[in-house]
């Protein structure tokens, strides 16, 4: 899985890629952490299960990232990586994740930028030419 940051006048965008949907959402988590702080310094000490669902894949991506933002703001939770499965069902999509990380330690996790929200701008989740998946998401910072 991979992520790459995009140029955007006022905010930050990320292009994500992975062989499968679960990997794509894992890439989103990694990109998100890398915006907040230096992801390499976040240790996968604690595990947390996260589950959510949405009508479409794009809504699911936004919901996933917003959940991570919520956990960061309310519990200072930072995640290094996650194992994610994304499946169709019940008329929509469901995500199950085991996310690994730790609470923010200002000494080890230098502040970069605070994400204000996950936008719908240019939002896309689609199959990629190589048989994998790709996504784009822009964060309001």
């Amino acid at each position: 899985m991979s992520y790459r940051f995009l140029d955007h006048t006022a905010d930050v965008g990320a292009d994500l890629a992975a062989p499968d949907l679960g990997g794509l959402f894992a890439a989103a988590l990694a990109a998100f952490t890398d915006i907040l702080t230096d992801r390499a310094r976040v240790e996968p000490r604690d595990e947390r299960r996260i589950a959510l669902s949405a009508a479409g894949l794009e809504e699911l991506l936004v919901g996933w990232l917003e959940e991570l933002l919520y956990l960061f703001e309310t519990e200072d939770a930072l995640f290094h990586d996650a194992e994610v499965t994304v499946e169709e069902g019940g008329g929509g999509w469901a995500l199950h994740a085991l996310a690994r990380g730790e609470a923010q330690d200002p000494a080890r996790h230098p502040a970069k930028v605070l994400v204000k929200g996950v936008t719908y701008h240019g939002l896309a989740v689609r199959p990629a030419a190589d048989g994998g998946w790709a996504a784009r998401v822009i964060f309001d910072i």
Binding site: F5, D7, T9, D11, V12
Partner: peptide, 8 residues
């Protein structure tokens, strides 16, 4: 207003 992206 911003005229340069954050990357730039």
């Amino acid at each position: 207003g911003r005229r340069m992206s954050r990357k730039q």
